[in-house]
Design a protein around this nucleic acid. Structure first.
Lengths: 353, 353
DNA sequence: TATACTTGCGTCAGCGCTGTCGTTATCGCT
DNA sequence: AGCGATAACGACAGCGCTGACGCAAGTATA
């Protein structure tokens, strides 16, 4: 007989049926206040009988907290964003937050105002900005904009004063990769970088350069080619590099997909991996272990970055609630680790066989 | 001077400042009713000056529509789910819906009640169930449960009466793959299937079997091995198959990752692709074009499946609003297409070279 | 027995917004 | 001048819930 107008059972419905006030039902639902075991049981029974589900929207309206977080990301088809998102989701769930999800069609959408407006309109408690920093797609980040927004955590961007940032140490990862190639005795290291509009691509490349220069190994522009993260671009770059510099004996690719493309070209041109050319990638995607040959790479903790960002955000939300807002925010930088597989083997080890 | 208690500018604030009633501001915001150009401009100015943003929660509370959809998925790290999600997001945005996102840690979570409860509590207008059908993880789908939920669309599951379903024709895709291997003259086709708990894996395998049997090509259990979708499992299965049946001249892998693993083992064992063994995968992940050799595969429209599911859901929501609820729901089945690359070449073509 | 305190609940207002139904002021028309 | 029609707004209630407060009955203390 109900159902008709509101479609949902309300607190009032339960209260009427149980012969108590709405407030008492509210207390039972929220486990608060002093309630006799008697009424608690009775109300609980009615709740189940009627199939009552609280309306979080109404609750949020009065409590001024939605217990939801806005997440903005782009390029879910890539390894990084999807793993980070998984980490964000898991941690949010643990902390009792729901996720409002917004996916940008590309990372450098010019006008992000609608996305932010939507989050504000839905009164999210905080925002996680998990879009890679490319070109000047972070130009909108200005104090006068941020002040009208809930707390925000930024993922994978260059540290900046006053912002909460969680990022992977791409530069150090790049150094590790190049250093490994040096360690196994390679002298002519070609580098296939990601698109240089991306901060992460620049960092990885810079790290590689730094290691090469420190070791006194050649590091000229003719040894660098810019891809777009895709395997196809990796193949293109590889061909270009080998044409320019046939003496190349190692490749550092900005990600595993491009490394895959490079491997394919090497096979096609009859270059043996790792005897003629050693190859190392970046990201440690699951498939890289099954490339031919299995790919050495740099592992970084994207899932963990997602988890951490949620925790940082949670703390910021608490702080704002308690008034203390301008607490110092330290960027969190996650370290990378080297994974050595068959695609890189030291020269001396090769000679031994 | 405001800000202190409510943190947000409200309709009332704007109304006071503009010297009109709250209702008038509401009319301006929603572009409804008769308003003189004069007041409209004046109110608009105050809105901008104060930085007013409507509170969708309050609006939803009275309008009984949240303009949000709940999406449940699992295994975002895989190609399928992430692409489908991208399609869902794009189409939802177009139709003015926001996405509430829930990620299951694994596809066969025993208790999905919390997820559904959360969606109901947040009053989503509809739900998209984008979790693969595996084992009996759809046992919860019973009429008495569904009746208490908003409209739901199910992705990639076996058609079932009374449910709205959007799925890819995995069986036909499997047939296309096997038929292609037959067409290029292969006689001993090994099959590396996905985990057989998955409906999609069973369908692909069944399609392959069907094509082989129809062509009178051998199709015995010794030619089938069960993987877990991962490249590593593909390698394991490949080794096992070649050990059991050294006469294999073709492989149909349940997805591209497992095909990648198979390729690696073939290289390792010195079998030439495609001369000795032709390999075809399933999914058409971007990298498959850069495998060595480039992988033939079955393409299916996952992104489109996401888009379609949102549109179907939208229609269901409209129907329920207008009372007519029990309209017939037809399953949407998307067709697949064959992509031929270097990993499968006809015997005759090989002989010509 | 009077006082203070606790337990167990109800009353009421209000979160921010919109739908319904007024109420004026103005206009055109006879 | 008198009438109805329209335009342009405001008053009010209520969506479902919770926080602040109140109040009666029971319990402990002096």
């Amino acid at each position: 007989m109900k159902q008709a107008n509101s479609m949902h059972v309300t607190l009032q419905d339960v209260a009427r049926q149980a012969g108590v006030s709405a407030k008492t039902v509210s207390r039972v639902v929220n486990n608060q206040g002093e309630i006799s075991e008697d009424t608690r049981v009775r109300v609980q029974a009615v709740i189940e009988q009627l199939g009552y589900r609280p309306n979080y929207l109404a609750r949020s309206l009065v409590s001024q907290r939605s217990h939801s977080l806005g997440v903005v990301t782009a390029g879910l088809e890539h390894h990084g964003p999807s793993h980070t998102l998984a980490g964000i989701e898991q941690e949010s769930y643990k902390l009792g937050y729901s996720l409002l999800f917004s996916l940008l069609p590309e990372p450098d959408v010019p006008n992000i105002a609608p996305v932010l407006d939507n989050f504000v309109a839905r009164r999210v408690d905080g925002i996680i900005w998990a879009v890679a920093e490319i070109q000047n797609n972070r130009a909108w980040i200005r104090p006068e904009v941020l002040v009208n927004l809930p707390p925000i955590v930024f993922l994978s961007m260059a540290p900046r004063a006053g912002l909460s940032i969680v990022a992977v140490d791409n530069r150090d990862g790049g150094m590790q990769a190049a250093q490994h190639l040096i360690d196994i005795g390679r002298k002519k290291v070609g580098m296939i970088s990601g698109p240089l509009g991306w901060w992460e691509a620049r960092e990885r490349l810079a790290g590689g350069r730094q290691a090469l220069e420190a070791a006194g190994v050649e590091c000229s522009p003719s040894l660098v080619s810019e891809g777009d993260w895709s395997a196809a671009s990796g193949a293109r770059c590889m061909r270009q590099l080998l044409e320019r510099r046939p003496d190349i004996d190692a490749i550092f690719a900005g990600n595993d997909q491009m490394a895959l493309g490079a491997l394919g070209v090497a096979h096609q041109l009859g270059r043996r991996i790792p005897e003629d050319i050693a190859v190392i990638g970046f990201d440690n995607i699951p498939e890289s272990d099954s490339f031919w040959p299995p790919l050495s790479t740099i592992h970084h903790q994207l899932f963990e970055a997602g988890c951490i960002s949620v925790n940082v955000l949670q703390k910021m939300i608490e702080l704002r609630l308690h008034g203390r807002d301008h607490a110092p925010v330290l960027p969190t930088i996650l370290t990378t680790s080297l994974i050595v597989r068959a695609s890189t083997v030291s020269v001396s080890q090769l000679e031994r066989n």
